[in-house]
Simulated assay, not measured.
Amino acid sequence: MLPATDADPFSHDVLENPLPLHAKLRDAGPVVHLERYDVYALARYEQVHAALTDWQHFQSAAGVGLANFRFEKPWRPPSLLLEADPPGHDAPRAVLSKILGPRALRKLRAAWFADAEKLVDEVLVDDEFDAVPALAEAFPLRVFPDAVGISKQGRENLLPYGDHLFNSFGPPNDLVARGQAKIGASTEWVTARCAREELAPGGFGAAIWAAADHGDITPAQAPLIVRSLLSAGVDTTVHGLAAVLYALAVNPVQWQRLRDRPGLARVAFDEAVRWESPVQTFFRTTTAELEIGGTVVPDGKKLLMFLGAANRDPRRWDTPGEFDLFRDPSGHVGFGMGLHQCVGQHVARLEAEALLSALAARVRTIEPAGPARRHHNNTLRAWESLPVAIRR
């Protein structure tokens, strides 16, 4: 018999601490029916990984949120990366994969490391500060929009726009209503930044438009691909950086390991993405009647993949609740997996490596300086505030 629950994964209690629900879902079985929304939950690593890598049967084109685009109109034009499947997904993905590839990142590396050192020196004039606005938000908002090629004025629109976007993947609850009043102005600003004339030469955005000129994508696709960079390329990195800063602040032994071996900076970031899973959930939609873990799921049904639960599944990870820099976190699903795996993950890793390297070279100890406060979002696991104290 299919296990079921009336638990609401989008309630504030769960968003504050999803770990108990994750454990219950994993223990209940490979598939659990979420009665409140009539969707099927996947919380074990095996089933989540399988769904992420099988785009033919678990489609993204019907929306990666609760809304089913087979029957409902999206609130904005769907993403050509997140909310598309082949063949429509292929050309945009190929263009971005090349633009965000190793060659481009090698060119950015020295400048981003220098920018991280400058920011850290500015922040460390104080022995106590809030690491979320001072570091986790400030660094991506400095370097990534520059790389895309957008102006500095108005960048404060990026975070509320992304916050509302990821809230919209859940139900129309109070979190969606909270952002609704402001989303018009933020959307207008972001949309305007995607135009060719708004993008500086030599940046990622200009390269996307050049791909349209070359015929690799259409002119109509170009601004939507730039929009994908601006919507998914900031918030997830901000929350990933906050996750690793929190993990290191509450695990002093791991901080010392990083100081002793600065080359572990990327491992630290990936382990934090596994441990905290800044992107907690994504939906897929079945394209046929499917058998999953002994349960038959009808065609056209929404499945909610709990990435955070999969990343702490003891069936896959030893001591999954521990943040451990000696662990190999590769294989985590925090960036997705398969065809729709985050195309900008290497950009996020470079930002994290630059920031953590600058901190490790300057800070002997980092620890909490007061209660941390969560920011609730229907999709993201985020920190609103992370007070820390450091010694140089």
Results as ranks from 00 to 15, higher is better:
residue 146 D to G: 13
residue 78 P to C: 07
residue 153 Q to C: 02
residue 82 L to N: 04
residue 155 R to M: 08
residue 127 D to G: 01
residue 101 G to V: 12
residue 90 D to P: 03
residue 85 D to C: 00
residue 96 L to F: 04
residue 110 A to T: 15
residue 155 R to K: 09
residue 152 K to H: 12
residue 119 L to A: 05
residue 77 P to A: 06
residue 90 D to F: 06
residue 114 A to Q: 13
residue 133 P to N: 01
residue 97 S to K: 14
residue 150 I to A: 03
residue 150 I to D: 06
residue 100 L to H: 06
residue 82 L to C: 07
residue 139 F to T: 05
residue 145 P to G: 08
residue 155 R to V: 07
residue 143 V to E: 05
residue 101 G to L: 10
residue 80 L to P: 11
residue 116 A to T: 12
residue 136 A to W: 02
residue 84 A to L: 00
residue 162 G to R: 13
residue 159 L to T: 08
residue 88 G to T: 05
residue 120 V to L: 03
residue 113 F to T: 12
residue 108 L to F: 11
residue 147 A to P: 05
residue 166 F to K: 03
residue 129 F to T: 01
residue 115 D to P: 10
residue 135 L to C: 09
residue 109 R to C: 06
residue 165 L to Q: 02
residue 97 S to T: 15
residue 120 V to S: 01
residue 110 A to E: 15
residue 94 A to S: 15
residue 141 L to G: 09
residue 101 G to I: 12
residue 107 K to M: 12
residue 136 A to G: 08
residue 142 R to W: 09
residue 94 A to N: 14
residue 161 Y to A: 10
residue 109 R to W: 06
residue 132 V to Y: 00
residue 155 R to A: 10
residue 107 K to N: 13
residue 83 E to S: 05
residue 79 S to G: 07
residue 138 A to E: 11
residue 100 L to F: 11
residue 97 S to D: 13
residue 171 P to M: 09
residue 167 N to R: 06
residue 160 P to R: 03
residue 157 N to C: 13
residue 83 E to R: 02
residue 77 P to E: 12
residue 113 F to C: 13
residue 83 E to G: 04
residue 105 L to Y: 08
residue 126 D to A: 15
residue 117 E to Y: 02
residue 135 L to P: 05
residue 144 F to H: 06
residue 82 L to Q: 05
residue 93 R to M: 00
residue 91 A to F: 07
residue 91 A to E: 14
residue 111 A to W: 08
